[in-house]
Design a protein around this nucleic acid. Structure first.
Lengths: 401, 401
DNA sequence: GCATTATGTTGCCCTAGCCAACAAATAGAT
DNA sequence: ATCTATTTGTTGGCTAGGGCAACATAATGC
C-alpha cells in the first residue's frame, strides 16, 4: 500500500497547493471565493495567501470595482514573473513557448528544422530559441521547469520517448538531453494526454471528469483518457493510444503496423487526396468538405464517419465517459454529418453507457497544447509551493557557440 | 474543482482511516509495522490504535512469539464482532454471506430460486437467509452494511441495476428495495469491478496498480479496470464492459446485441457444446480441454484463443496495464496454450505497451467475489472510522411472515 | 548478567486551522 | 448625508493532533 500518514506539514502543503492551484486556474480570484471553494476559514485563507505572497508566487490587490454588498474582497492573482518553457517538437519545426503561471502564453517562437529532425537537432534548436527568448524576459523572471509534449509514446518516469512515428524516433532520452543542456528540470508527456487535460481545464471539457479525447492529425490519430478527473497513463505512460483501437478485420495497417485500427481506416491523407488538395490545414480541409461533394468523396467521408463511430462506440462501452471530444480533422468529420456519427455510435454502443454521453468538437486552439504542457512544468510547484525550487533566468544554460 | 481544504479533523480522519485499512487488509499487524508503513510517529500510532480500540473496531494483544531483537511489538487485529452482509444474486440461486472486518467469510448460505428470478424474489430470499444467519451470530455483532455484486450494469449513485442480461433485469431499484427491507445501508457494484479490486487486494493482482480483469462466465464476459490503483467506473458506473469490445466484422451478436465483440466470439457454451459436455463447471471444462482434442474442437479453441488475444491486445494498447488477469473459462483457454495466446497478443499490440505486460490467471476462488463485495459494505467505515454508524444485529429488520 | 536493540509510554512542544470580536468597506434605504 | 445591513479583513487566543525526547520495558545474544 502506497498511502502514507499525514502530519501537520502535509496538511499545510495540501492547503497551500490547493489555494495556489485555484489561483493558477482562475488567473485571478477573490479571497472570499477561495474561502468558499476550499471550505476553509477566512483567517486560514488569509494566512495561506500571505504565505504564497511571501513565496513570491501570488500578489494581492484591491479589487477594481465592487458590485455586491459588503466589504470588497481582496483579489489574489498569480505573479507575472514565474513561468516555464514549453518545447514542442514537430514534424518539420520546433516551437518554444514561455508560459506564465496562470496559463498565459507570454511568448512563442518557432523555428524550422529538417523533416524528421534528429533529437540533437531539436535540442539544439530548443536551447537556441530559449536563449533568444530569455533575453526579452525580465531578469527577475523565475523558471519552474520545462514541459515537452511529444507526438508519440513517452515513458514518463525515464523521461524518454519510446516511439514517435511522426518524428521517426525510437528510444530517445530526450528528457535527459534537455536537462543536461538547460540545467532545468524537464518533464515529458504524450501530446494527446496533455491536450485532453488542457481541454478539461480550459477547453471544451471544462467541468467534466470522464473524458475521451481523440485527435486526428497528419501523422495519425492520438488520444487521451481522463477518468475520475485523472489522466489515465497506464503502467509506463503509454495508455491512451486510441488510434490503435481495432475496429475491423481490414488488413490496412496504421503507422504502428497494426491492421484494421481506427488510425488505419480514418486517414486525413485519404481525404486530402480524394479532394485533390495539396497541403491543406484543418480549416481548409473543413471548408473543402462543406460544399456538395462528388459521390466518391462523399462515400469516403461516410465510411470514415462510420469507422470513427465504431471506434467511439467501442470506447464508450469500455469507459462510459461523459463526453467524447474530437479534435483535428476528426472534428471536421463531426461537423459534416454529426447526425450520422451520433446515430452510428448509438447503434454500436451499450444501452446504459451511451445514454448521457455527449460528442463534441474540442476547443482546440494551437495554444492549448502549450498550456497543457506548461501544466507539466508547473506540476511540482503546484504540488508543493513552499519547497519547490525555482530557477533564475540567468542560471539557464546558454548554447555553446 | 472538487478538491477542498483540509483541517485538523480531516487529518485525524485520514490517519485513522489509513490505520484501520492497514489492519483490515492484513487482518493482524504489529504496531511497529504500522509505524513503518504509515511513516507516522510511534506515539501517534499508539494514539490512533487506542482510538480504534475505543471505537470497538480493533483489539491489541501481546504477540505470541518473537523472533527478533528488541521489545516485541503489540499486535493489532480486527475485532470479530464487526461484519457485513453480502447478497449475491445468481442465475438460479441467491447467496448470502456474512463477512467480517478483515475479509474473513464468517458464514455463507445459498438458496435456490427460479431461473431468472424476479427482483422481489431475490429480496425475499435474501432477507430470509439473513434472518436465519443472524440467529447464529453473537448478539453483540455490529453490521456495517450490505454489499451487492451484480452481474450486469449498475448505476452506483442510484443504487439500481441498469441491465443484467443474466438475470433478465432492466432498471431495477435493487438498492432501495433492500434498504427498505433490511433497514441497512446497501451498496451495489458490478461484479467484474468488485472481482478486479478483490484480485488486487487479495488475489493474483496483489501489488499491481494497473490491472485489466476479464471474467468469462456462463452468461458472457465481464471485466474490470483498475488504473493507478483506482477502479475505473466511468460517469455512471458502467465502465468496464470489456466483453463488448469489438474485435471483428463478424455479425455474430453478443448478449447485448452487439456484433463482432469478444463476448460474441469467445463463448463458453460453444466449448461445452463442442466437447459434448452437458453442464460442466469450470474445473470440469478445464480438464476436458486438457487431453488430446478432436480437430474440430481444437480449431474452435484456437479460434477462441486468437480472438481473446485480439481483445487483450486492444485493451493493452488502450490501457498499458501491468497485468491482465483472466478468470472463469478464460483462464482455461490460457492454460491450454498460453504460448499461442501471449504470442498473438504480442502481434497485435503496440511495442511499448506490450513490453512489460503480464498475462495471468486470476486467483479466483468463489469467496473472492464475496470479499470484494464486502469491501463495498465496509467502505464508509474504512473511510471514516470514528463517525460511521454501525448497526446492531437485532435492529436488522426481519422478514414478514 | 550485561550489552544491544527495538518498541511502548509519557509529558511537553509546536503549529495549523478555528473562532469570536472588532474593524473596515460597500450597497441601499431614509 | 446618515444609518443599517451585509460582507470581508484582521487580530489574538484556543485547541487538538502529530512530533520529539527521555525513560521504561522486553526481547536476543554473548
Amino acid at each position: 500500500m502506497r498511502a502514507t500518514g499525514s502530519n501537520r506539514e502535509d496538511l499545510r502543503q495540501h492547503n497551500l497547493s490547493l489555494v495556489l492551484r485555484l489561483v493558477h486556474r482562475a488567473g485571478s480570484i477573490s479571497r472570499s471565493e477561495l474561502t468558499r471553494l476550499t471550505g476553509l476559514n477566512r483567517s486560514t485563507i488569509s494566512d495561506l495567501v500571505a504565505d504564497l505572497v511571501t513565496l513570491g508566487l501570488t500578489i494581492e490587490r484591491e479589487p477594481e470595482s465592487s458590485t455586491r454588498v459588503g466589504r470588497p474582497s481582496l483579489n489574489v492573482s498569480v505573479v507575472a514573473e514565474v513561468a516555464c518553457f514549453v518545447i514542442s517538437p514537430g514534424y518539420h519545426s520546433t516551437t518554444v513557448a514561455v508560459v506564465g503561471l496562470g496559463g498565459r502564453v507570454i511568448a512563442k517562437r518557432r523555428k524550422s528544422t529538417r523533416i524528421n529532425p534528429n533529437p540533437d537537432e531539436v535540442v539544439e534548436t530548443a536551447i537556441e530559441l530559449i536563449a533568444q527568448m530569455s533575453r526579452d524576459l525580465p531578469t527577475k523572471t523565475r523558471i519552474a521547469g520545462v514541459g515537452v509534449p511529444v507526438p508519440g509514446q513517452v515513458n514518463i518516469l525515464q523521461k524518454s520517448v519510446r516511439f514517435a512515428p511522426h518524428l521517426n524516433w525510437v528510444d530517445v532520452p530526450l528528457g535527459q538531453m534537455l536537462e543536461d543542456a538547460l540545467g532545468l528540470p524537464v518533464r515529458l508527456d504524450n501530446d494527446g494526454s496533455l491536450s485532453s487535460s488542457a481541454e478539461r481545464d480550459f477547453g471544451a471539457g471544462k467541468g467534466f471528469d470522464d473524458i475521451i479525447y481523440l485527435f486526428g492529425g497528419d501523422g495519425g490519430i492520438g488520444g487521451g483518457i481522463i477518468m475520475g478527473g485523472n489522466v489515465i497513463r497506464g503502467s509506463t505512460g503509454y495508455a491512451g493510444e486510441l488510434g490503435h483501437v481495432r475496429i475491423s478485420d481490414s488488413r490496412t495497417e496504421d503507422s504502428a503496423g497494426l491492421p484494421g485500427t481506427l488510425e488505419a481506416l480514418v486517414r486525413r491523407e485519404d481525404l486530402i487526396e480524394a479532394l485533390r488538395l495539396d497541403d491543406a490545414d484543418d480549416d481548409e480541409l473543413h471548408s473543402a468538405l462543406q460544399g456538395k461533394l462528388p459521390p466518391k468523396v462523399s462515400r469516403l467521408v461516410e465510411r470514415q464517419i462510420d469507422y470513427l463511430a465504431l471506434a467511439i462506440a467501442n470506447l464508450v462501452n469500455i469507459f462510459n465517459p461523459q463526453v467524447v471530444l474530437l479534435a483535428g480533422f476528426l472534428s471536421a468529420l463531426y461537423d459534416i454529418d454529426d447526425y450520422r456519427l451520433v446515430n452510428q455510435v448509438r447503434l454500436s454502443s451499450l444501452n446504459g453507457a451511451r445514454e448521457r454521453v455527449q460528442i463534441r468538437t474540442a476547443a482546440l486552439g494551437s495554444n492549448l497544447l502549450l498550456v497543457g504542457a506548461a501544466e507539466l512544468a508547473f506540476a511540482a510547484l503546484l504540488n508543493d509551493p513552499a519547497e519547490t525550487k525555482l530557477f533564475r533566468i540567468r542560471d539557464v544554460k546558454k548554447p555553446k557557440p
